[in-house]
């Protein structure tokens, strides 16, 4: 499965000249804690709600400051065609909670730890499916006996 199948697309973005105040409102509107800063579909950086607080408000900064002044410009990214297993490894190593996703140089989405958490549920469901299919492979008379009072192993 590819990263593109799990990512949120399109990502929530603002342009570099967006003010801190407008960025905070954008986060509120989209119910997200971070936005990607982009010019068109070219990724410029990322800014989180924590960045707004620590790098602006806590410093007595001006809410009309351009977000490009406090974004993190160096952002590690994933490729839309990366295998999701690579994304797991990346998150495990990097200690980050979100990664922009590119298709070549084009910004196409964002993948978060929450997206992978939902994938974990799908993996649990896959295991449950295996248990179910094992019953379907049984002869009908045996399947009828599979209504035990004891817990099923698996």
């Amino acid at each position: 499965m590819k990263v593109s199948e799990y990512m949120m697309a399109p990502p929530v973005t603002v342009s570099p000249d967006t003010t801190v105040r407008q960025t905070a409102l954008r986060m509120e509107d989209a119910a997200v804690g971070s936005v990607l800063v982009a010019t068109g579909d070219r990724l410029q950086g990322i800014v989180t709600d924590r960045d707004l607080v620590v790098r602006c408000l806590a410093q007595g900064g001006d809410p009309d400051t351009a977000v490009s002044d406090l974004m993190s410009p160096s952002v590690a990214t994933l490729d839309a065609t990366d295998d999701v297993e690579a994304a797991y490894r990346t998150f495990r190593r990097a200690g980050v909670r979100r990664r922009p996703v590119l298709d070549g140089h084009r910004l196409v989405g964002v993948l978060t730890v929450d997206d992978l958490f939902l994938d974990v549920f799908q993996r649990l469901a896959d295991l449950l499916g295996s248990v179910a299919w094992s019953v379907l492979r049984d002869p009908p008379e045996l399947a009828a006996l599979r209504r035990p009072t004891a817990p099923a192993k698996g």
Binding site: L128, A132, L136, A144, R146, P151, A152, K153
Partner: peptide, 16 residues
């Protein structure tokens, strides 16, 4: 019958 058996097994397995 098979549907009931299937549900019974799934609802008692470790994952569920």
């Amino acid at each position: 019958e098979r549907t009931a058996a299937l549900l019974a097994v799934v609802e008692r397995c470790t994952v569920h």
